[in-house]
Write a protein that binds this DNA or RNA. Structure first.
Lengths: 199, 199, 199, 199
DNA sequence: CATGAATGAGAATTCATTCAT
DNA sequence: GATGAATGAATTCTCATTCAT
């Protein structure tokens, strides 16, 4: 391995260790010592890669969040555009949460412990939806909304999926998670489908 | 003041100080020292009233959350039962968040820092909605759902209002908060109204 | 011991330990850990008495410096006022340095590590001299100087005694220290006596 | 550039960077990292030129101190030997301090952070004065002193100029610095001139 | 020689909690 | 029951130095 490759590997170790520790114990208990230990590097090495603890925290959500968004979009593209695709997107999100147990904490504690990253993550997602909705409006697939309305709409959509994820997260076992997922998708379709159609 | 009254006054001081400090700085930075100082008692006194720091945290949400729920229901009761009332409830919640700036933190950080209280708070609210919806179904005011569906529905409703609150919380100024509130209520009505009616 | 007395005793322990450690190793190597250990208290206790490490450093010079100034003035008062007394004062200072080995570091490193305290210490001493010289001028015991001149004069006097102290501090052994002291006093008299007299 | 020239250039970079950083932040905060960065070399390169951090510190004072002594002597040679020349020397020193703001720290913190270099610097200066005074005595320009007396005399002279420099260093602005300089020279002449003449 | 990532000992500081008064 | 000094484990972060490339 070249020097550069090694550095990249160390950075990845730290990011992965960061994710693992935060997933397991939350940001609050994710000490630099634990993360460095798990990454297999000296404590000081941490600070060669991150300004401080907060900097790692702010790097976690982009690192994991991008992975999630890509996975979801990849699946979403298999569905026909429009309401149908949005429902697939919702389901894909819930599946991601089910399959990546720890992601829930990384994402939902970020508002508190990695506010910059959280804001950016939110903005990214909101912007993605803005584009989707504007296209849909342009093509007359949904009714018209002004920008303010679109923003409020999107936040409420995000709230639905966030709280569906919460419900799943706190479910007792795997089969309950799956049941909640299916039922949430159904309810989401109910809410979502009828409300946005042309009148 | 009798001994008992004095004790109750001290307890209240601590709870109020706890709310104030958490509202201002978040649970994470709400040290026992700060809370005791603000309450005007010695640090040691804190432990005569709470097992430990976590115990106070878990007491905060019931203390403030009840106040909120009462305020909201009081307003909700002025509206005719059914979809209309639920929309009023939603608006009342957003108004509460606007008027009680610090409450947002007490509530939304509780999932992390006061998980027991948060769970109970959620259960209380969910149960409230369960009753409301069951009555509405019994009276044929809304379509029928089974229990699983009701739970999922309610979580999504809570998600909407939580994220509308988030949007308001991060709004730049008061007038923007009010605009978001009004627009969110409108969107909520859109989602909510059409989806639940009898088909 | 009452609670208050105990607190005072702890504070004294810390101040004395601070002096001892700084005297032995210099401010630079005087860690809070070493000082607390020597004082026989927990590390955290240190911070019940001092804002931070710098605060202790700034407390050291007043603590020791006052002791020195009192000792010197007590001796100086035994001499007749005027040039004679000033020479006694100079000698008393050198004796203090000889007898209080560690004081040299506390005093001369303070310019770097406890700048506020050093500034105040200097001002105190300068003001003391200002008074002395103004009285002497008023009584026609020395020639006249304006304020600017007095300040410059005093700084040079302080430089003499500081560097005489330095010479003593680095002397190989006790007898050499004493020789340097006596000789410095003699030279000081030479410089000092002739220059200030009325012309 | 030959290999040797390049090495010399790197060494100079490090020495100049060392001076700059110490002048700006003091020895205490002059980390190897800052110095190497400013010199434009890798951290590891530092250790090809200096055993350790202390070694650089001990190199700084000779590097800058020599420059100062040469400058001063060059000016001093323009004055007639004797008391007159010594006063010019004193003034030249104060001017050097005024013109080389950062030098004050390099010089006066050296006693603590570069004790070997400081000792040598002092010895060099003391020896310079010893020669001067011995010549002056041989030529009957000043009264006679034995070696011990000469040493004490010289230390007190050095003290005067050091503290005059301190007074200047802490002066509020440039014009005050100049006033203090002029007044200090005057007072120095008073002390110095009358005391050393033949009696 | 130059590089710069890795090291790890050690520094300052915080704070929940205890307990003698 | 109230007090507040004492505790000490834990945390974040720094930096001189090393050494494989």
């Amino acid at each position: 391995m070249s020097r550069e490759e090694k550095a990249r590997a160390t950075l990845d170790s730290l990011l992965n260790a960061g994710c693992a520790v935060v997933a397991a114990e939350g940001y609050s208990d994710a000490s630099v010592a634990k993360i460095a230990d798990l990454a297999g590097v000296a404590h000081g090495t941490f600070y060669n890669y991150f300004e401080d603890r907060k900097a790692l925290f702010n790097a976690l959500l982009p690192y994991e969040g991008l992975r999630m968004r890509e996975k979801i979009e990849q699946i979403a593209r298999t569905a026909p555009p429009g309401v149908q695709r949005e429902i697939v997107r919702f389901e894909a999100f819930l599946n991601y949460v089910i399959e990546n147990e720890g992601f829930y904490r990384i994402l939902y504690e970020a508002e508190i412990f990695a506010p910059e990253a959280h804001r950016e993550h939110m903005d990214n997602i909101v912007n993605g939806y803005l584009g989707t909705f504007r296209r849909a409006m342009a093509e007359n697939r949904i009714r018209r909304f002004d920008d303010q309305q679109l923003h409020c709409l999107i936040y409420q959509i995000l709230g639905m999926r966030a709280y569906a994820a919460m419900q799943i997260h706190y479910a007792a076992d795997q089969s309950e998670k799956l049941r909640i997922r299916d039922c949430s998708v159904e309810m989401y379709g109910l809410f979502f489908g009828q409300s946005l159609l042309q009148t």
